[in-house]
């Protein structure tokens, strides 16, 4: 499949997707606040189509201001399918751990602080990814399941995202947003990398969405 990036999604389609993400993230953050007291702000998303081989370099460039990062990655699988990456700057695990406030069990179960931070990042990552991807899928009239999250803790930003994550020769839509936790100095990046196999479906779903709401 040798298409130029711009042929995959037209500008109009990208605009619709961006709008969908905007609505989805708004709903997701409202629900997160209401249901589990996690207050998160998600910036207006940015949609771009690039070749999968260029993804690691693209992500590295996006993250050049952070020397050390932690990445939670999780696959989502529906007709809408791909890989979600949540990128936290180093130290975010500690902040989130104190934010979620159920730290009583650190000493009692003998786990080290590093493990608890990792667990917190993974749990928050799982919830955040599930909420956001779930809402996007819902607006596209789809249901998704998820693979277990995987985490890379405090790596140099150049190494944290491996090229082997993505199929070679394929195209990906990158949906990027910056999130921050209210009242806390934690922010990071959220990438949804939609795999090319779901493009045909995605195009149709985007126009169906438009018909329903426009």
């Amino acid at each position: 499949m040798d298409m130029a990036p711009e042929q995959i999604l037209s500008q109009e389609e990208k605009d619709i997707l961006q709008e969908i993400m905007n609505i989805a993230f708004g709903r997701a953050s409202a629900d997160l606040a209401e249901v589990i007291d996690i207050y998160v702000e998600l910036s207006v998303p940015f949609v771009q189509t690039i070749r999968a081989v260029d993804l690691p370099a693209y992500i590295t460039a996006e993250l050049r201001n952070h020397e050390m990062i932690s990445v939670v990655e999780q696959g989502y699988l529906g007709r809408f399918r791909g890989m979600a990456l949540l990128v936290f700057p180093a130290g975010a695990g500690r902040e989130l751990f104190s934010l979620l406030g159920d730290g009583g069990d650190v000493s009692s179960n003998g786990l080290s602080m590093a493990v608890m931070e990792k667990e917190t990042l993974m749990e928050v990552g799982n919830i955040l990814i599930g909420a956001c991807v779930g809402k996007v899928a819902e607006l596209l009239d789809d249901l998704v399941t998820y693979s277990p999250p995987r985490i890379t803790v405090e790596e140099h930003s150049g190494n944290a995202v491996g090229a082997d994550l993505f199929e070679q020769g394929s195209m990906a839509t990158v949906m990027r947003t910056v999130f921050s936790f209210q009242n806390r100095d934690i922010n990071g990046y959220f990438f949804l990398i939609n795999s090319s196999e779901s493009f045909q479906w995605l195009k149709k779903a985007l126009y169906l969405f438009l018909e329903k709401y426009a």
């Binding site: 249901v35 069990d105 990792k118 919830i127 998820y146």
Partner: peptide, 27 residues
């Protein structure tokens, strides 16, 4: 009946999330 378990239940019921409790972290 702890915040973590309840948070995960809510995320599953409300968002349709999946939650994973790995042996490494939870035993």
């Amino acid at each position: 009946n702890n915040p973590k378990f309840i948070r995960n239940c809510k995320a599953v019921l409300k968002f349709g999330n999946f939650a994973f409790f790995s042996q490494k972290l939870h035993s």
